[in-house]
């Protein structure tokens, strides 16, 4: 089942990247499909947890550099067709659900209007905003670092949620997954517009198979504080040339406050539970 989960993980990310590449009405459709594939991934994971099958979040590198959207769409279809052949390893209900979704998605993808892709042209301009070289460089580094961080957080919180039966803490993990998805989509879209789209690198098992949950929360709070500082610096760097972009990074910065509050809440709950 782990192999099926890996293939679904790769199909989800490929579809998400295709969503970033698109600049028209295809985008929302591709994001919706990628969300569905992520849910499939979570459901397969749940069955692995229930059957006590050992698993990990390993995956292969995902090549995405294309000049036409249709090329990546056919790659997704190929990936989904391969997944379809492996569905016998999951329960009948889940297998039926995934198979029907694949049938629909692989039917829709070839009908999407083709697009020329500019997400890899490295031009590093954003929505006609004139940024200084220094601000452009700072934004470039921020997007690479933070898009990976958001992907990492999605995977870590998702893994912890899958391993936990604690409803209180799982509610918090789910909020944090949803929030990281929003940030990842925002950053990925910006990267595509700037022509610097890249797939976040895969994560090590030591990062999500956490031994010390208390330490993880404390480090996570520290990371969020650092992310806030990065957003603040970036907002400052771009404010002279683009108040709009500065406002966006202030908005992201302010969202991190609630993440910190949630993580402190989760930490307090965890510590209480440990002491009972």
């Amino acid at each position: 089942m782990n192999n099926l989960a890996i293939k679904m993980h790769e199909a989800w990310l490929t579809t998400l990247m295709a969503g970033f590449m698109s600049t028209n009405e295809n985008k929302q459709k591709l994001f919706d499909f990628s969300d569905i594939l992520f849910r499939h991934f979570c459901w397969i994971e749940r069955e692995m947890v229930e059957s006590k099958e050992a698993y990990n979040y390993d995956r292969d590198a995902i090549p995405i550099k294309v000049e036409k959207l249709s090329v990546i769409l056919y790659n997704i279809i190929e990936r989904l067709n391969q997944i379809d052949l492996q569905l016998t390893v999951v329960s009948d209900d889940l297998s039926y659900r995934i198979a029907q979704d694949i049938k629909y998605i692989t039917g829709v993808l070839p009908t999407l209007k083709d697009e020329d892709i500019t997400a890899f042209n490295s031009e590093r301009t954003l929505d006609n905003i004139e940024l200084t070289q220094e601000a452009t460089d700072a934004l470039t580094l921020f997007l690479f670092e933070e898009s990976y961080k958001e992907y990492e957080l999605i995977m870590i919180y998702n893994y912890l949620k899958a391993q936990s039966d604690d409803a209180y803490i799982n509610r918090i993990f789910q909020i944090l997954v949803d929030e990281s998805f929003f940030h990842l989509k925002s950053f990925g879209d910006m990267m595509a517009k700037m022509g610097i789209l890249g797939v976040p690198r895969s994560i090590y098992k030591e990062m999500y198979q956490i031994e010390d949950v208390t330490e993880f929360f404390l480090a996570g709070i520290d990371e969020e504080l650092k992310a806030k500082e990065e957003c603040r610096k970036l907002s400052e760097a771009v404010s002279a040339n683009s108040p709009e972009l500065a406002k966006f990074f202030d908005f992201i910065n302010n969202q991190e406050n609630y993440h910190i509050a949630l993580m402190r809440d989760a930490l307090a709950h965890w510590e209480n539970k440990k002491n009972v």
Binding site: S122, T136, T140, L141, R201, S202
Partner: peptide
């Protein structure tokens, strides 16, 4: 940040 650096960030070589 130059073209070579961006290339390595977008598509790290030999990762895995």
């Amino acid at each position: 940040v130059d073209a070579q650096l961006i290339e390595h960030m977008m598509e790290p070589k030999n990762y895995g």
